[in-house]
Lab assay of single mutants.
Amino acid sequence: QVASGNGDRDPLPPGWEIKIDPQTGWPFFVDHNSRTTTWNDPRVPSEGP
């Protein structure tokens, strides 16, 4: 069983990049398509309500 969020081996969607926040050391994700950033890994399906 693979733990949720453990998709580091999967490629990011086109136009996405991983960067590290220098203050926290946490990775965040840059979507160059929409010029936005998020803490949520785009490779992990979001949980519904």
Rank of each mutant, 00 (worst) to 15 (best):
P11E: 13
G5V: 15
T24S: 14
S46L: 10
P13V: 01
P14Y: 08
R9T: 09
D10F: 10
F28G: 05
S46M: 12
D41C: 05
F29G: 06
D31T: 03
S34I: 05
E47D: 11
R43C: 04
A3H: 10
W16I: 03
P11Q: 13
R35T: 06
K19R: 09
F29Y: 08
P13Q: 01
D21I: 01
G25W: 02
S4N: 09
P27I: 14
D41V: 02
P49L: 07
H32A: 01
G7F: 09
S46N: 12
P45G: 10
G5P: 14
P11D: 10
W16Y: 07
D10C: 09
N40E: 12
I20T: 07
T24N: 13
S46R: 11
Q23G: 12
G7E: 15
W39A: 07
P42D: 04
S46C: 10
N40D: 10
S4R: 08
G25S: 14
D31P: 03
W39P: 02
R43A: 06
A3V: 13
N33L: 03
P14K: 13
S34A: 12
A3R: 07
E17T: 04
W26A: 15
N33P: 06
D41S: 07
P13D: 02
G48T: 00
E17L: 00
R35I: 00
D8V: 09
T24Y: 07
R35D: 04
Q23C: 07
E17M: 02
S34L: 08
G7Y: 13
T37L: 03
N40Y: 13
Q1L: 08
P22M: 01
G25P: 08
K19Y: 00
T24G: 12
R43Y: 01
G25E: 13
V30K: 03
V44G: 10
L12W: 05
W16R: 08
P45F: 11
E47M: 09
V2R: 04
G15R: 06
G5E: 15
R43S: 05
Q1W: 14
N33Y: 07
D21R: 05
N6V: 14
P14A: 05
F28D: 04
V2S: 10
E17H: 01
L12I: 08
G7N: 15
H32I: 03
D31W: 00
V30L: 02
E17R: 01
S34D: 04
N6M: 13
F29N: 06
S34N: 11
G25N: 15
W16P: 00
I20R: 10
I18R: 13
F28W: 02
P22D: 03
L12C: 13
P42C: 10
V44A: 02
N6A: 14
V44F: 07
T36A: 02
D10L: 05
N40R: 11
S4M: 11
D31F: 00
P42W: 01
V2Q: 12
R9G: 07
D8W: 07
W39C: 03
T37V: 08
V30M: 11
P13K: 03
V44L: 14
F28R: 10
N6G: 06
D31R: 04
P42I: 00
P27G: 11
T24W: 09
P45N: 11
E47K: 10
E17C: 01
N40S: 08
S46D: 12
V30G: 04
G5T: 15
D21W: 07
V44Q: 10
P14Q: 09
F28C: 11
D41I: 08
G25M: 09
G15V: 00
F28A: 09
T37G: 01
S34V: 02
D21F: 00
P45I: 12
G5Y: 15
T24F: 00
G15I: 02
P42L: 01
K19I: 01
H32M: 07
G15W: 00
R35M: 06
F28V: 10
D41G: 03
W39E: 09
W39Y: 09
S4D: 12
D31A: 01
R43L: 02
R9D: 05
F28K: 08
L12T: 12
P22N: 12
T37Q: 01
W39F: 08
T36S: 09
D41W: 00
H32V: 02
E17V: 00
E47Q: 05
G48N: 14
D8A: 13
G5I: 15
P27R: 15
G15K: 05
A3Q: 09
S34H: 05
S34Q: 06
N33S: 11
P14I: 02
P13Y: 04
N40Q: 09
L12H: 01
D21M: 09
P13G: 03
N6E: 15
G15C: 01
F29D: 04
G15Q: 00
D31K: 00
T24P: 02
I20Y: 08
K19V: 08
K19Q: 02
E47V: 02
D10H: 02
H32F: 00
P49A: 09
P49Q: 15
Q23F: 09
V44P: 01
Q23K: 11
F29T: 04
G7Q: 15
H32T: 04
S34W: 00
